[in-house]
Design a protein around this nucleic acid. Sequence first.
DNA 1: GACACCTTACTGACCAGTAAGTAGAGTCGC
DNA 2: GCGACTCTACTTACTGGTCAGTAAGGTGTC
Lengths: 192, 192
Amino acid sequence: MKPETDARITDTRKKILDLAEALMLSRGFNAFSYQHISAELGVRNAAIHYHFPKKSDLGVALIERYCRRFERFTQAQAELSPSEQLEQYFELADRYFGQQQICPSGILSAELQTLPDDMRQQTQAFVALMRGWAADIVRRGRDVGVMHYPGSAEGMGDVVFAAMQGALQLARFDQQALQSVKLQIRQLLGCQ
Amino acid sequence: MKPETDARITDTRKKILDLAEALMLSRGFNAFSYQHISAELGVRNAAIHYHFPKKSDLGVALIERYCRRFERFTQAQAELSPSEQLEQYFELADRYFGQQQICPSGILSAELQTLPDDMRQQTQAFVALMRGWAADIVRRGRDVGVMHYPGSAEGMGDVVFAAMQGALQLARFDQQALQSVKLQIRQLLGCQ
DNA sequence: GACACCTTACTGACCAGTAAGTAGAGTCGC
DNA sequence: GCGACTCTACTTACTGGTCAGTAAGGTGTC
């Protein structure tokens, strides 16, 4: 009966978000239902609706959390070198892969046409964040002389971002594809 | 009453496949129903089930058609130079983009976890085809001296394939992303 | 007694899939 | 050249399941 043991900290809302996140990244937003969450959580369907009245509310909350998390992620490694930042991004992808998941921007853009309007706008903001960050890394990498590539930093950032998103999807068929793409990007950037 | 005028050629089965293809590439396989097709076609729902008893039959037929079409596509340009072949692949992506669609391998790998088994296997074969072809182009490009890149042809092929798949998804938010990625890939390969 | 956080119980929409019937066109025996 | 048969390509009518979403009630806590 210690106050630490009754896990008040982990409230239902957060559990819902965590479960929804895992479901979205493996099955897609349209392909999971409130039933999937409530069954796993041991509550009734309507409990989910209490926290997130519409499914799009849940979706928007998910993407907002991604944005916040991603901004914390980039801020936390603002002091790292560009090549270290690139490796951090690769590790992020490894984590998704380890859980049979794909990139959130990947699933969201694939399903974009069927997403509710509010989710679509949030997705756009999230993709812009990730895209801008990839461009930042390779721009600063070239500025400090550790990365070398032709063309613009925006173009190279887009290639890195798109290739990693594609690689996570490719990795669903061939486990080695992710490693292969990571290695090739390092070589294309001339770092390591 | 000429025998040519009563368009017997365009049979329902092909119309179903064409409509299903467009729906899958824009909405995804799980997000379209037989209703979508039958309403557009002016027939009843069960008419679709006559041609494709299960939805997975329709899905498998779709991917099989992709495989056949893609093999014809690659055979037709076997004589072209590697850089011309690359441009042909880019034009393929442009066509998808022009119809607000994404790459079939993109949507199928995103939805993979929710696809029926037979579709999953077909998808794997299709992805292997496209992936092998991308590697072939850059391998032959390097062999004849018009493309230059570090690392293996397989790695570079994977990057090109994954980047183009990702670029089509990115292009749903920013129209210029596709052009940007295409240009950057050309520059990375040192051709043009 | 007010509020947060659930519950039970329900609605209406949509979905894949099935069963049975039918219209028309082609084929065969005679 | 005509009825009987058969096959293709549908139709109508239905089932059972899943879904998001709602309304109203309960329960514990402050």
